[in-house]
Design a binder for these strands. Structure first.
Lengths: 151, 151
DNA sequence: GTACGTGCAAAATGTTTGCATCATT
DNA sequence: AATGATGCAAACATTTTGCACGTAC
């Protein structure tokens, strides 16, 4: 499916900027922040502005083309930036405590864990608490041996 | 255990402010933001400043007395504030998509799900990816029937 | 008495918005 | 032509920090 097609199907206009941002986000297995994405895409997209990256990512999230991943901390103390993920189906994340980097758990492992979540449990949550679960987010927080962040 | 004792054991000095903040955080099942906590505690703690609430919460997180919970969004678009949780053992959270509120999943349900995470799976993660898991964070994102946020 | 915590206001992020202009439909 | 996207700069919200003072040990 062409990027243009993806946008149209989701009711978004096609622009150079959106295409570049979408391609970059879909291509990486890391989960870049808006700023990282800006720096990745900017050289190939003259005149791109950071605000557009934010707006575009927000638009993607609204139509379900991307997901925002919150950050507890960016390595040291403090709040980090949001990260974005073009993979929309449920999957697990690994978050590095030191750097704040987030990468995917390999599909096979993700699936094995997700398969073990009993659906009665979700049903019970809905029944007991009146809460409709739309999405399950699972994250393993820890660190890479030696502190590097690439898998 | 007296609050003073808890602090001492964790190498923190005891102050009126810290005690008040800790008590408030430990007493609630909701997971307040720094600002919410400030407004809860402030009336009973003359001259408390928001900066102290932030500093204190950060100190608590560092010694393991509290946890920071990141927020993807605060209901509508945008970044919300971090939330804090005095319950340190692994448990699950419910996050309301509309309001950003976070509450705990009842222990019984939490435990049932956590028990189903095979420990070989964690071992495999460590072996295959060289990632040491310190903490598992699980969150159900969705909404309460009717959009209210109290359980 | 010393080291650490506090309060204030100012700085540092990270993110959103108003508005004029430009591109897509 | 009309609607919506972009870019810039300014506004915003959240969190952190520098410094003078106060307090716990």
């Amino acid at each position: 499916m062409t990027a243009r097609g993806v946008f149209t199907r989701h009711g978004l206009r096609h622009t150079r900027q959106r295409q570049a941002i979408y391609e970059a986000l879909a291509a990486t297995k890391e989960h870049p922040t808006a700023d990282e994405l800006f720096r990745m895409v900017s050289p190939r997209t003259p005149g791109l502005s950071l605000a557009t990256v934010y707006n575009t990512l927000e638009a993607f999230c609204e139509v379900g083309l991307a997901m925002r991943i919150a950050s507890t901390s960016n390595g040291k103390r403090g709040t980090g930036s949001a990260r974005y993920d073009a993979t929309v189906d449920n999957h697990l994340h690994l978050r590095c405590q030191q750097t704040g980097a987030v990468i995917d758990v390999p599909d096979e492992l993700s699936q094995r864990l997700l398969d073990r979540i009993p659906s009665e449990l979700l049903a019970e949550l809905e029944a007991k608490l009146g809460f409709k679960v739309e999405q399950v987010q699972i994250e393993f927080v820890g660190c890479f041996d030696g502190g590097h962040t690439k898998a």
